[in-house]
Write a protein that binds this DNA or RNA. Structure first.
Lengths: 209, 209
DNA sequence: GATTTTGTTAACAATCTTGTTAGCTTACAT
DNA sequence: ATGTAAGCTAACAAGATTGTTAACAAAATC
């Protein structure tokens, strides 16, 4: 019954994730995290020396999920380019839907303290660089085959991410302004997913001119 | 020379705006604001009883700018629907470009404390409601004339806002990840504006099916 | 010109927040 | 079983942060 290996540490991490995602680094309180985890706040400092270190854990974990999410999106198949993009869009949308608070969390923290990002900057930038090169190659091939209109890889990627991510980021404002509860409204999100796909597909479809 | 009517109050407001926009409510320090404004921090509490009240001023001012921005967008003309939307998109983009920190500021604050929004919720919701009704009417007319594909007014509005706003919100992450300085890169923003217009225009153009 | 109101300062106070320490208990290894 | 390490707690400490107060100066009002 008394299997208490490191479950307090886990409880702290779980509570910290909630608190940091909700309120951000500045708004989070270590005492509040400890309370939510059901431990004394001395315990928190026992496992994680400082608030900063605890945050680092959460931030890295979060970043990991985002990178995984993006990797998952680019499961290369041999389908036509447009189908692949449509699939990637859908998967990306679902990843965000499962972790709707991650994007705002990350943007908020990077905006208020860009240095934090420096640690993983190299990883990201080479990763993103390779991804963009591969994507541009595929785009160029598809253009050559007449399957799509020309588009810059960076531009396309930003289009996709903007459309998929922004609705989740603006959700609190939307809900506050309309009084609607979007969590209970799966129709809204299905419609959104379809709309994003449609937008990108129309963007890629060659014009009949 | 000694014309000091209420310039300290103004200095405090200006410094507070900087600080709140940059760091958010939780990250902002009243002492730091006072220092930046060149006044003692007792002075800050003299003009604005509490940090909360000072924030309220800034928040309302900011909201005002955003609403003005949206109003400016919907300067009704008698041009064809698609042209009007293209124009609105461009104006909206420029409004954000002039105030690139406003959207993240608002989203961040509403996310961390939705109650704050309650005050102005009514204003916004009726305003947004009317706007959506008018937009839907125009859409339906344009559809009837065969000028555009059918689209929900809410959907179109969210498309437009997502595309225009998200790049500015994600800018810090983008810069941190790539090392680029987007402020110095006016080409990037021009391309973005064009791309957004193109996306929406293609979305609206009836399909040749 | 006297009085009242407004502006200003320095010092103080209360509370919140993070972090530490000393000592106790439990588990674990030998 | 005994000693050592890890887990845990309560109390404390330092510093930051917001807010107040008393006393004084300047300006406005009469």
């Amino acid at each position: 019954m008394t299997k208490h290996q490191n479950n307090k540490e886990q409880a702290i991490l779980a509570a910290a994730k909630e608190e940091f995602l909700d309120k951000g680094y500045d708004g989070a309180r270590t005492t509040s995290i400890a309370r939510a985890a059901g431990v004394t706040h001395a315990m928190l400092h026992y496992y994680f020396k400082t608030k900063e270190q605890l945050f680092e854990h959460i931030f890295q974990e979060t970043m990991g999920m985002l990178v995984e999410g993006i990797l998952e999106v680019f499961t290369q198949t041999d389908k036509p380019f447009k189908e692949r993009i449509a699939e990637a869009l859908g998967i990306h949308f679902e990843v965000i839907r499962q972790n709707p608070r991650l994007p705002l969390f990350m943007i908020r923290e990077v905006a208020s303290r860009p240095e934090r990002f420096a640690i993983i900057k190299n990883v990201i930038s080479t990763f993103a660089g390779n991804l963009l090169i591969a994507l541009q190659r595929d785009i160029d091939q598809a253009v050559a085959k007449g399957e799509i209109s020309h588009i810059d890889a960076t531009t396309l990627l930003l289009d996709m991410i903007s459309l998929n991510v922004f609705p989740f980021i603006v959700k609190p404002v939307f809900e506050a302004a309309t009084g609607l509860d979007l969590n209970a409204d799966s129709k809204f999100w299905e419609l959104r997913k379809q709309e994003n796909t449609q937008l990108i597909m129309r963007r890629l479809t060659p014009m009949q001119s």
